[in-house]
Computed example of a mutant assay.
Amino acid sequence: MNTKTSILILYYSSQGATQKMAELIALGVESISNVTAKLRTVPSLHQSQTPNTASSLMVTRDDLLSCSGLILGSPTRFGNISANIQHFLESTLDIWLSGQLIGKPAGVFTSSSTLHGGQESTLLSLLLPLLHHGMIVTGLPYHHPELHRTQTGGSPYGPSHVAGTQGDQPISKDERALCMAFGKRIATIAMRLNSQEGSHT
Score class of each variant (00 low, 15 high):
103 G>F: 05
21 M>H: 04
48 S>P: 02
49 Q>R: 08
11 Y>D: 04
13 S>E: 04
96 W>T: 11
34 N>I: 05
89 L>C: 09
62 D>P: 03
119 Q>A: 10
40 R>S: 11
42 V>S: 00
80 N>T: 14
86 Q>L: 15
30 E>A: 12
54 A>V: 11
47 Q>E: 13
123 L>S: 01
26 A>I: 04
25 I>C: 03
61 R>I: 02
35 V>W: 00
69 G>L: 07
106 A>T: 03
78 F>I: 14
122 T>D: 05
31 S>I: 01
15 Q>T: 13
84 N>C: 10
94 D>N: 07
28 G>N: 00
26 A>E: 01
119 Q>R: 08
14 S>Q: 09
104 K>H: 08
67 C>R: 02
100 Q>K: 12
60 T>K: 05
116 H>N: 13
52 N>H: 09
114 T>Y: 08
101 L>M: 12
119 Q>C: 08
124 L>C: 13
107 G>E: 01
12 Y>V: 04
79 G>Y: 11
98 S>H: 11
52 N>W: 02
47 Q>S: 12
38 K>M: 14
22 A>C: 14
89 L>V: 05
63 D>G: 08
80 N>W: 12
53 T>K: 06
121 S>Q: 14
109 F>K: 01
51 P>T: 06
34 N>D: 15
19 Q>D: 10
13 S>F: 03
74 S>H: 14
37 A>H: 07
67 C>N: 08
93 L>Q: 07
62 D>F: 10
76 T>E: 08
89 L>I: 13
98 S>T: 12
80 N>Y: 15
59 V>P: 00
87 H>I: 06
98 S>G: 09
61 R>V: 02
23 E>I: 13
49 Q>A: 04
57 L>R: 14
72 L>F: 10
20 K>T: 13
53 T>Y: 00
91 S>D: 08
108 V>H: 05
119 Q>Y: 03
39 L>F: 13
99 G>T: 04
74 S>F: 14
89 L>K: 00
107 G>D: 02
109 F>Q: 03
37 A>Q: 06
90 E>F: 13
44 S>M: 03
16 G>M: 02
111 S>T: 11
82 S>W: 02
44 S>L: 04
111 S>L: 02
29 V>T: 06
97 L>Y: 11
79 G>P: 12
90 E>M: 13
14 S>R: 09
36 T>W: 00
79 G>T: 11
14 S>W: 04
77 R>G: 02
65 L>H: 04
49 Q>V: 09
69 G>C: 11
43 P>N: 01
13 S>Q: 04
92 T>C: 09
84 N>F: 00
